[in-house]
Design a protein around this nucleic acid. Structure first.
Lengths: 207, 207
DNA sequence: TGTACATCAGTGAACGCGCGTTCACTGATGTAC
DNA sequence: TGTACATCAGTGAACGCGCGTTCACTGATGTAC
């Protein structure tokens, strides 16, 4: 009901201002997450940085968890779009997967906490809504598609989709293995060339 | 200096009692970490569960961070021992790596938060001491050894240690990729057989 | 175009909670003669 | 074996901090006539 009103009035000055403030809150939330991790997300701290009092934010978000949920869903959608965009630029299935993987790494390195929010240790005391699980599954689609295409062009496979799905998951876990350890700083002082390692893992599944 | 005293008096009733209480604190700390993650570690909460007041714990630990450090170092040592023990039971290098990997998975699944404490998203506001980094590096030794042995038995390699090191890291990242996503619940509702997936990843590096 | 009214952003005080940590102190336990 | 003393575990009060959230209220902005 309220949503209906918000939609209808989406171009009114008040509605515009609302969306502006909401955007600013989200921006500050990301800053905060980037600095101290998702569990440090605090409405009071955001309000202080915005020069407002905390109760004012309750006009814009139902509470801390609702804000966190919105951030997570946004991040999933953003990542999915980036993945699809990167994939679309490729010609062959292999090329698509490679671009997708490199985009994923760039995305993750440019804002580690955003990646860790989605794929790292779950935020204590917060349970993701069902929508998040759905989005998390759906994000595999741009990975799956090139594998399906590759299998289809390669005759003789018994169950092309089954094979493609397995390879997709493997692709994902291998990239995540390198990325998450890199982001958490676990290669520190080990003299590992993470970029090369990542590239090796890309090739390991594609070839 | 204090350490010296503690050593000398290690069999006195008081010293025994001290170690007993310290152990109980650690046990409650692990319980707490298992339930709500490492960032929920709280001296006050531990004291309450032990039927004591919080300041009393300062007789046993310098503070929250010191306790956390001790837990992390203990976990590293425990994992290293488990890895070495498992490896020792194997005959061929391949066998050793396989046992090591399966032990790692069992260890991680039996107490997810303990694994995530070492290899998950860093605890916000806490920076691990240098010793932790050293231990984290040293834990690669039992992985590296079988690969070195395998390379040595396989003539023709240019730089056996270099190759072995690269394979060790790959082994590690691939296992971690599956494990960490499994522990964080990211395969939920995707119909993935994680055990089989893990086994596939073991074979991918060994074979 | 001006006036009356409704809407809504934002404030300030407050509640209850939990945290790490310090300090002066009590009382029990171990030690030296 | 008993007494005087030192050591040390643990308490209770307190400090200052930050958190999410509620509530009654003010004042500005938009809307309808």
């Amino acid at each position: 009901m309220e949503e209906r009103v918000a939609e209808r009035a989406s171009s009114s000055p008040r509605a515009r201002y609302r969306e502006q403030v909401r955007a600013e809150v989200r921006a500050h939330a990301w800053d905060q997450i980037a600095e101290a991790g998702a569990s440090a997300l605090s409405l009071k701290a955001i309000a202080k940085r915005m020069g407002m009092t905390a109760p004012a934010l309750y006009r814009y978000f139902d509470g801390r968890d609702e804000l966190l949920t919105e951030l997570i869903l946004t991040a999933y959608r953003e990542l999915a779009e980036a993945a699809e965009g990167a994939s679309a630029a490729g010609v062959t299935p292999q090329d698509r997967l490679r671009r997708l993987a490199l985009t994923l790494r760039r995305w993750a390195l440019s804002n580690p906490q955003r990646y860790l929010l989605l794929y790292g240790t779950p935020v204590p005391g917060y349970s993701a809504p069902p929508e998040a699980t759905v989005l998390a599954t759906r994000i595999l689609a741009p990975v799956l598609a090139p594998f399906v295409a590759a299998e289809a062009g390669d005759p003789g496979g018994d169950q092309p989709v089954g094979v493609a799905l397995r390879r997709s998951v493997t692709f994902w876990t291998r990239l995540h293995g390198v990325l998450s350890l890199e982001l958490a700083g676990h290669f520190a002082g080990m003299g590992v060339d993470t970029e090369e390692l990542y590239d090796q893992e890309i090739r390991s599944v594609i070839a």
